[in-house]
Simulated assay, not measured.
Amino acid sequence: MSRPTCSRCQRPLGHCLCPLIPDLESRTRVLILQHPSEVGHALNTARLAALGLRNAELRVGEVFADLPQLLAQPDYRACLLFPGEEAVALTGYASKEKPLLLVVPDGTWRKARKLLHLNPSLMALPRVSLSAAAPSRYRLRKAPAEGALSTIEAITAALDVLEAPLGFDALLRPFDALIEGQIAAMGDEVFIRNHQR
Score class of each variant (00 low, 15 high):
1 M>I: 02
2 S>T: 05
10 Q>R: 13
17 L>W: 02
20 L>C: 09
22 P>R: 00
23 D>H: 08
24 L>W: 00
27 R>Y: 09
35 H>V: 00
38 E>G: 09
38 E>P: 02
39 V>C: 15
39 V>D: 09
39 V>F: 10
41 H>Y: 07
44 N>C: 11
45 T>C: 08
46 A>S: 09
50 A>N: 10
52 G>N: 13
57 E>H: 04
59 R>H: 12
60 V>L: 07
60 V>I: 02
64 F>C: 10
66 D>T: 07
69 Q>I: 04
70 L>G: 15
73 Q>Y: 07
74 P>V: 03
75 D>V: 10
78 A>L: 08
80 L>I: 04
81 L>I: 02
82 F>K: 04
83 P>E: 08
88 V>Q: 14
89 A>G: 10
94 A>E: 04
94 A>V: 04
94 A>D: 13
94 A>M: 04
97 E>T: 11
99 P>Y: 03
102 L>C: 04
102 L>W: 04
104 V>N: 05
106 D>C: 09
109 W>Y: 09
112 A>K: 02
118 L>A: 14
119 N>E: 11
121 S>Q: 10
124 A>Y: 06
131 S>I: 12
131 S>F: 14
131 S>C: 13
135 P>N: 11
135 P>F: 01
137 R>Q: 10
137 R>C: 12
141 R>P: 12
145 A>R: 09
145 A>E: 14
149 L>R: 00
150 S>N: 11
154 A>V: 00
158 A>T: 05
160 D>H: 02
165 P>F: 12
166 L>E: 15
169 D>R: 01
172 L>W: 04
173 R>S: 14
174 P>K: 03
175 F>I: 00
176 D>R: 07
188 D>E: 15
195 H>K: 13
